[in-house]
């Protein structure tokens, strides 16, 4: 499910089935790292959209939480997790290309994936790369789901 009206209506009706929230954490840089940052953003958005396509009926993909180096400290991720828990998401997974979030590993479920530059690939290669990356995420998701 995406965070749009159509999907949210379905979510409201089928709440007991959709128990997982996927939250992309997106680091924006505007100095010399701007190119790298945009590449990581593209990768993270493509991958999360692909995950959404595969598991549409079980998870909701939230719009990305974006931050810069300066505004990062204003993002209280554990609090966000609590908030999502309280509205009924049993599992809250944060996906990011920013390695620094792994330091919060004991409080939140973070999946850190090193970004892959997709922009230089043609469609076929891109698809295989995303499929391979998805295979890394599936075991994490299914272990979460079998726990409960």
């Amino acid at each position: 499910m995406y965070f749009n009206v159509k999907d949210v209506q379905q979510f409201e009706a089928q709440k007991e089935f959709i128990d997982t929230a996927i939250v992309p954490l997106l680091s924006l840089k505007f100095d010399e790292g701007i190119k790298q940052s945009s590449s990581a953003a593209e990768y993270l958005m493509s991958l999360t959209a692909f995950i959404e396509q595969q598991f549409k009926g079980r998870l909701m993909l939230l719009p990305p939480f974006s931050y810069t180096e300066q505004t990062k400290s204003g993002l209280f991720v554990p609090l966000l997790k609590e908030e999502l828990h309280n509205v009924g998401f049993k599992h809250v997974l944060f996906l990011t290309c920013d390695h620094s979030w792994t330091s919060l590993m004991d409080q939140i479920d973070v999946i850190w994936l090193p970004s892959i530059p997709l922009e230089s690939m043609d469609k076929e290669v891109k698809k295989t790369v995303l499929e391979d990356q998805l295979k890394q995420v599936i075991p994490i998701l299914s272990s979460k789901w079998t726990q409960s």
Binding site: Q10, F17, I18, Q53, Q54, F55, K56, G57, R58
Partner: peptide
């Protein structure tokens, strides 16, 4: 596309 909630 699954007829339940649209997964693959």
């Amino acid at each position: 596309v699954c007829k339940h909630l649209g997964c693959t």
